[in-house]
Write a protein that binds this DNA or RNA. Structure first.
Lengths: 154, 154
DNA sequence: TATTGTTATACTCTATAACTATA
DNA sequence: TATAGTTATAGAGTATAACAATA
């Protein structure tokens, strides 16, 4: 296991991280940082953050979804979703309408502009994904998604 | 308390997330949230956050490491590492000493107390890991770590 | 001049309590 | 009373600029 006999760290050689690398969680975090940075880089031109892109995608595929279901799907706390939606609504990307059958609830839908932006953003997200996993074969990418999905169920 | 109280969906069915689930990054984030919450839960009794545990582990296995190498290994910005170390040092878990050969640098080492805490915390971290990946076989866990490591190189 | 580490600061993310309006 | 959503706020996490001491 030890490739360096001398325990002298006065110079800055690479630190031994074997202990942390034995944990799935640490590997997960490190990989997440890479994908996140690829994502942010490519999503900057669309002025979309990760949570915002996720909102657009879910709303596009679930038109008329209410905020409670949206918050649950995205694992975002309702107060934070409210401010997220404020921003997206102010940009004209989506609308909130009171549900006539339950006036407490809001029905969320994308505008035409929101739908267009979501389409472009999805392409950028897929490119970020590809860039981050470029050392993985197609089979490995599917395997990885399958293993990850087993962790968070769904 | 269990995480899922009841299948209460009166009218709102589960949102369709297929588009997002096609992205490795989204699966990565969702899995990361699960492991993070397992970790935080078990690390609370040690009053350690993830970054703090990582610092202890790296320092334990690289005694006398300087802050630059530590910051690089953990992908933490130097100013943030400084405040992280302030806290751990104030708790008596580690020491910072000027390097006599380069008085700009600090040599970081765990105290006996820090070493003991790191040992206990590692057990807790491994338990959090196990709990999060309990649906994965041993082979799948190794496969997952291997795939993740291909993403962040090292 | 360059590097190590620090201080100060700001911005994002996340979490919680308290409120409103409906039910 | 309970639920959907909002407001306000506080706490982490993260990023950058400016600085001091040393090389």
């Amino acid at each position: 296991m030890a490739s360096k006999p001398a325990p002298d760290n006065t110079a800055d050689d690479q630190a031994d991280q074997a202990e942390l690398l034995g944990l799935v969680g640490y590997n997960l975090r490190r990989a997440y940082l890479v994908i996140q940075s690829q994502f942010d880089e490519r999503m900057e031109k669309h002025d979309l953050r990760q949570a915002e892109f996720s909102v657009l995608s879910i709303v596009k595929n679930n038109p008329g979804i209410n905020q409670k279901a949206l918050a649950e799907a995205l694992v975002v706390a309702p107060p934070n979703l409210a401010t997220l939606l404020d921003r997206l609504e102010a940009r004209g990307l989506l609308t909130r309408q009171r549900n006539p059958d339950d006036k407490r609830a809001q029905l969320v839908e994308l505008t035409a502009q929101g739908t267009r932006l979501c389409g472009r953003a999805l392409k950028a997200a897929a490119e970020a994904d590809d860039a981050a996993v470029d050392r993985l074969s197609t089979a490995e990418r599917e395997q990885l998604k399958m293993l990850l999905r087993k962790i968070f169920v769904d």
